[in-house]
């Protein structure tokens, strides 16, 4: 499909509109025409990298954005895109180098702190991630990425009131964003409200059925909410504590069963306990596999 625009400003405007709508084939059509005429133009290089990134061609995107950053080392959005691509490629130490360089130039940028915090979370540097998220919120309490990083950190540190409060702030500022919905799902799951979490996750899936991450999330939640998982509810709700408590009760019961009315039932009780333990280990992955079929 051809978009005949007279000059570069209009082409760039169209590229921006198309990028906002994720129209990568149309973006490619414009870039194919514009690139030979303006091979070193900042925005042309940026959109060229972005279109590869949107289509998950990370290596190609990296090559182009590296060219952009080499040509325009001060480019904020070029370096931000480079950071995102390196993170996506799991080249995290290089991504960290990029974001640190940007933070030294823009020490009051909440978005940068937020992104760095999320990078630290992905790299299991939880304490540092928390400090970075706190810094991001202090600079700009309304920044979406800062709020997201903060919620994620709170979920890991203490999945209770602090996470809920931050979530309330995110929802009030960005009520219809897909990322907000995913944060709501994360908080609800942590608080064992799996039914509500599933409902919201399914709404997200209806908007993004091509996202494997969202599909996997819905499958996990459907598994957790399945009727055959009802016997495992105590384990879902109280985690390993429940497992240990059940084990302890069984042991105490069996060690003191001699001479009591339940002595004849000791063997069936042991079998039931072992069956329950095996069921709790074996059934959830089987159910998940079956759901995915």
């Amino acid at each position: 499909m051809e978009y005949e625009t007279p000059d570069i400003a209009q082409d760039l405007q169209m590229l921006q509109e198309l990028a906002a709508r994720n129209r990568t084939p149309q973006m490619r059509a414009i870039l194919q025409r514009v690139m030979p005429q303006h091979p070193d133009h900042h925005d042309v290089l940026y959109y060229s990298a972005q279109v590869d990134w949107l289509e998950d061609k990370d290596e190609d995107a990296l090559a182009t954005v590296s060219q952009l950053v080499e040509r325009y080392p001060e480019s904020y959005w070029g370096r931000m895109l480079l950071f995102r691509i390196l993170d996506g490629l799991n080249r995290r130490s290089e991504a960290e180098t990029v974001i640190l360089e940007m933070l030294r130039e823009y020490p009051e940028d909440a978005l940068l702190y937020g992104r760095y915090s999320i990078l630290m979370l992905e790299s299991m540097r939880i304490e540092k991630a928390g400090e970075l998220a706190a810094r991001a919120i202090a600079i700009d309490p309304d920044d979406e990425i800062a709020l997201t990083a903060s919620i994620l950190h709170e979920l890991l540190a203490d999945p209770g009131e602090p996470a809920k409060q931050r979530l309330a702030e995110l929802v009030s500022r960005y009520p219809d964003a897909v990322s907000t919905a995913l944060m709501v799902v994360a908080v609800l799951s942590e608080q064992d409200q799996n039914k509500e979490a599933l409902h919201i996750a399914q709404e997200v899936l209806r908007q993004s059925p091509d996202s494997q991450g969202v599909v996997d999330l819905v499958i996990s939640l459907k598994t957790a909410n399945h009727w055959s998982m009802v016997p495992l509810r105590p384990l879902q709700k109280w985690g390993w504590g429940a497992s240990i408590a059940i084990w302890f009760v069984m042991i105490m019961l069996l060690r003191n069963v001699e001479g009591t009315p339940i002595e004849p039932y000791a063997l069936p009780i042991i079998i039931a306990f072992i069956a329950y333990a095996v069921y709790s280990w074996v059934w959830p992955p089987i159910l998940k596999w079956w759901m995915r079929r």
Partner: peptide, 26 residues
Amino acid sequence: MTDELLRPSLESSEPVSILSSGALMG
């Protein structure tokens, strides 16, 4: 505090992960 925060933490891009709580329980 800020200087500490802006110090690099990742020596390599090797993915960082640990053994899960299930492994610990086992």
